[in-house]
Nucleic acid binder design. Structure first.
Lengths: 223, 223
DNA sequence: CAAATATAATAGTATTACTATCATAATTCG
DNA sequence: CGAATTATGATAGTAATACTATTATATTTG
């Protein structure tokens, strides 16, 4: 994976940023440390001023890359979903058995990101924590519909669609494949959150993972 | 329902408020209009100052009821879950067939709140919209664990537990009943959100409701 | 009717989420 | 190489936010 990604670039919708952070050293430091800082203090308390002082740069310089911290969150989310999509595609590509392929897909989209793949400045393990805890704030806004029209959520929607296709392959006449796909992806994040903060309302603990839960759910559903 | 609730009072954990808004006219107006205003402008743009001018009262007076707008959101969420719990209990109480009872329970917790039951100053239809769009912000914070210890999420967790009990009644040896219960409750909100904002990634449209989806899912799962 | 309590009015504070301007450093290109 | 362009930094400023504090005025209760 490391080798492949050294030639590929995770692609995020262009309208999300003013200047592509991948094109400069400062840009990369913005991304790298925004992930760390948001994880540390939470998205609400996160400001460009604080980030600036963390990376020894200026607030105004960060504004040259992102219009607002909301746009930065959109960037991080899109990046994560694109990265997951990439993994989904390569890890299922060569599997011809439909059932097996779907099972692998569920594994990929529901597993906890624990190891840092660090082919880049982005720490995926920490980014994953942000996705679990903060990413929904990127769409629970009054501007969702306008931003959706601008294509800000394309990557996420494409990932759901890819999973949906695999579900439909296994059970062509199933009426709720899209809802099942979106439930798996969002539900896995939610179960991870519950495991960490509200363990009394999740079965996912001691070896029982969200992956186990969703594979079991899908298997008995599509039989 | 209207009659029963005129003697009952929806009970919200006491630590959430400074002064119980149910005990005064101003308090009730705060709740009534905060729901309308949050729905109108979104939780981010909502302020006590704006609410004050809407209800012809003063910012400082609202602070005597709630420490912060975050606490107000916790109040509204708890109120909603308590109201749902109440409906869950009465609507399933007399059903002795376990399968049928569970199905009714899923209906109650996944249905769209469309009609206003207006036994009180609270418009449940609008409150439901807030739950779909804003309520997750009440737990996606750096203070969740501390607030969880204070009991702020008790009502929500109790609702999940009640559903879990009914699932276990139908299939005692099922390993993931808690995760299934939490997935149904959170997942239904998510599907409602998708239906409104990202219709391309949900099957729930034109007569196909989140209720249909989850009932189908659970039925084929627990068979 | 006095005392207690609730509400309103006003002021003040540190911080936020920016925008604008100007200076300086680094890069590119003829 | 030197000029022009572009990127970054420093500073200042603004309206709004999320409060706290104080004092005044209603309203309720005993």
């Amino acid at each position: 994976m490391k080798n492949l990604l050294s030639v590929l670039k995770i692609s995020v919708p262009e309208k999300i940023f003013i200047k592509d952070p991948e094109t400069s050293d400062l840009g990369k430091r913005i991304i790298e440390h925004s992930i760390i800082l948001i994880d540390e203090i939470g998205f609400e308390s996160f400001t460009f001023k604080k980030l600036g002082s963390k990376i020894g740069s200026n607030e105004s310089s960060i504004y040259r890359y992102f219009e607002s911290k909301h746009k930065l969150l959109l960037y991080l989310s899109s990046w994560y979903w694109a990265w997951l999509e990439y993994q989904l595609v390569i890890e299922t590509f060569s599997i011809s058995n439909k059932q097996e392929k779907l099972e692998k897909a569920i594994k990929v989209v529901t597993r906890t990101v624990k190891e840092d793949n660090n082919f880049s400045h982005i720490n995926e393990t920490v980014l994953y924590k942000i996705i679990v805890n903060e990413s929904s704030k990127s769409f629970f806004t009054k501007e969702v519909d306008a931003e959706n029209k601008e294509g800000y959520f394309e990557v996420y929607k494409r990932l759901v669609s890819r999973l949906e296709v695999m579900i439909t392959e296994v059970k062509p006449n199933y009426e709720y494949s899209l809802s099942l796909a979106s439930t798996i992806i969002e539900g896995a994040l939610h179960q991870h959150f519950l495991n960490e903060h509200f363990p009394t309302i999740t079965s996912c603990k001691k070896g029982k993972t969200p992956t186990n839960f969703f594979i079991h759910l899908v298997n008995s559903n599509l039989k």
